[in-house]
Simulated assay, not measured.
Amino acid sequence: ISPPGLAWRLPKGSDLVLELHLNRTGKTEPVQAAVGFHFTEEPPTNTCHTFKLGSLDLDFPAGATNTIVRDAAELPVDVDVLAVYPHAHFLAREMKGHATLPDGTREWLIWIRRWDFNWQGEYRFRKPLRLPKGTRVELEFIYDNSTNNPANPHHPPKRVLYGEQSTDEMCELGLQVLTHRPGDLQVLEEFGRRQRDRRVEAWLRGRLARDASDAEAMTRLGLILWTSNRSQEGWQHLDRAVRMRPDFAEAHYNQGVFLRFHGQPAAARQALETALRLEPTFPRAHQQLGFTFAQLGLAAEAERSFEKALELNPADTESRAGLTELRQILRSRGNPN
């Protein structure tokens, strides 16, 4: 049971989406899913956060029996751990998660000696586990991609990388935590974002080490580098991806976004229009082209781009806000359109 005050606020108009992961049986099966909601009269007074350890840079050769994956982080604030969420697929054999407090005390978060794919889920503490600022939380998962693993989905075993399909592999340990002081939640969220970017960067660099012509990894690494204040290195990767695969719309799109935010709207327009020639139904490219046209003072073109973005993705709040602001400006100038 969660501590009091942690109700989840569901705003009016929210979409509730149920995603099911199903195992094949070899024949047609009926599926009847249901979700139960528990309501409260008390408004929330606090908010949980799920902090994650893990790795995306997974590569398990066929026959490897004892591949160890580790990750660690030092908590920037005091937290109470309410629950843990271990996640892996069929190759995982053993899972360990523990915390080393600043005074050297070691606390187990979870230890599953013989992992079963059906055990992924929430493991709640009987009472919250207090971890002070400076605690080092660590993950160690062991994988077996050999015939010794009866759960191995590949016969014979084959190389397995990170991926969302059950026959791919994953490595993640989520910690549901509660902060205490005002501002600590924001500090923890920002810290988690940097940790996530670090994992994504390592994964993308690993992909490029295995295949230097991987334009998708190249352009996405460029974005990570740019948003982590390494703009020059980021641009080099973005530009290289376009040169590697001139027919790759995402590479042109990412290049266009970079140019727009670096005060080069004319060059950004060219990159985004190229992306749309390659992929006309690319909603985010229409959105960014709308903002680019607005920077260039081309109001009618900006309006059409925002409208197209919303036609393709009605949930695009940025395009809706951009279109609203644009029309307000036009009205203030005496242009009814």
Score class of each variant (00 low, 15 high):
A266Q: 15
L238H: 05
V160R: 15
P336Y: 08
G97K: 01
G36C: 01
G206Q: 08
N313S: 07
H38R: 13
E138Q: 15
T65W: 06
H87G: 09
R93W: 11
F261H: 15
Y85P: 00
R260E: 09
T40W: 03
E41D: 14
G26Y: 01
P128M: 10
A275I: 04
A212G: 01
W226S: 01
L53A: 01
P4S: 04
K96Y: 04
L161V: 13
Q270D: 13
I112A: 09
K158M: 14
R159A: 11
L223V: 11
R9G: 06
A202R: 00
H49K: 07
F37I: 07
T50R: 12
V160Y: 15
L296K: 14
R304D: 11
L238T: 07
V31W: 02
S2R: 04
V35D: 08
A92T: 09
G63A: 14
G297T: 14
L178P: 05
G256I: 05
Q120N: 15
H154P: 09
N118M: 08
L312G: 03
W119A: 04
T100R: 05
A217D: 02
Q270H: 10
V187Y: 03
L225S: 11
K52A: 03
P76N: 14
A299I: 09
A266N: 09
R124C: 10
T167I: 15
G222R: 02
R230A: 10
E250A: 06
R194N: 10
L91G: 07
L109F: 02
L161W: 09
A92Y: 01
H87N: 12
P30C: 11
Q328A: 13
W235D: 10
R327K: 12
P3T: 02
E303I: 06
N118Q: 06
I142V: 15
A73D: 11
E74R: 15
E41S: 13
P76L: 13
L204H: 00
V160C: 14
V137R: 05
S305Q: 12
V77I: 12
A302D: 06
H49S: 10
W111R: 04
F125G: 00
A88I: 08
L75A: 08
F293Q: 01
S2G: 01
P336C: 11
E325C: 05
D116R: 10
V257K: 11
A92M: 10
L310V: 08
Q32G: 02
N313T: 02
T227H: 13
R284K: 13
V257P: 01
G54L: 04
A299P: 10
D214F: 09
M218Y: 00
E318L: 09
T67P: 03
S305R: 00
S231M: 12
G63Y: 12
R269L: 01
C171F: 05
L82Y: 13
R260P: 03
L178Q: 12
T25A: 07
L6I: 06
N118E: 06
G206W: 10
P156V: 15
L296P: 14
T67K: 07
A151V: 09
T45R: 09
T227R: 14
G174D: 02
L18Y: 07
E190G: 08
G63D: 11
T45F: 03
R194C: 09
L18P: 02
R106Y: 01
P132L: 07
A251V: 01
G256W: 02
P61C: 07
V35E: 10
G36T: 03
N313C: 05
P314E: 00
K52L: 03
P150C: 11
Q287R: 15
D247R: 00
E169H: 12
V242T: 05
D116P: 04
G163W: 03
